[in-house]
Amino acid sequence: MVSLLDIIGPVMVGPSSSHTAGACRLGLLARGLVGGTPDRALVELHGSFARTGEGHGTDKAIVGGLMGFRPDDERIRTALEIAEREGLAYRFEKTSLDDEHEIHPNTVRLTVERGDRRSVMQGSSLGAGRVLVSEIDGFPVEFTGNHDTIVLVAEDVKGSIARIASILSDRSINIATLRLSRQHRGGDAFMVIEVDDPPTEAVRDEIRALPWVKWAFRLDKVSA
């Protein structure tokens, strides 16, 4: 469903809604997967991101997003210098992630590390600043950052979804979508829960404290 505010927006640092604003949003989501600014980041640019990214500030926008800058933050212009000063060691590589026809032309794979936590996220910038995350740590996912989102990995135990849903409902947090994927029966389950109401850090902590939850992160929504 198209929103007026998607059309009259986003407010952003130029020059390209797909190569700059969308790239920044993908950086913001990857940051969320390690719970803060990473110590190290490998940025693998695919397709048009690789070909015209430099001229569009895609590199600055992604690194800015990793440091928590939103698309309208003018610090994006000097994000690479700020990252060097603040100890975010980033590295860019141009790559071909797959057959060009199967993967969106504006796609990036981000490998981020913070402390002993490491995560790999793949996502695409679809145009007009809209993004889609397609893979996290090898699990296929599909979410847009248009909602606050909780991602978690849990052992495949019965009743896990009901338990998490009840934690959210106890806090009056409405679930917009919930998707579950697992690599095989009995293997770890990857859950992506998009919610209408912003979850607090306490909610995340409560979910993470469940004995069968291996890790859980809360990703702030990246749309306006």
Binding site: M12, V13, P15, A21, G57
Partner: peptide, 16 residues
């Protein structure tokens, strides 16, 4: 020109 210089604009409908 602001957009091309990485200034702040409203993408309406797009930055371009």
């Amino acid at each position: 020109e602001v957009n091309a210089a990485m200034g702040v604009i409203v993408a309406a409908p797009t930055a371009g």
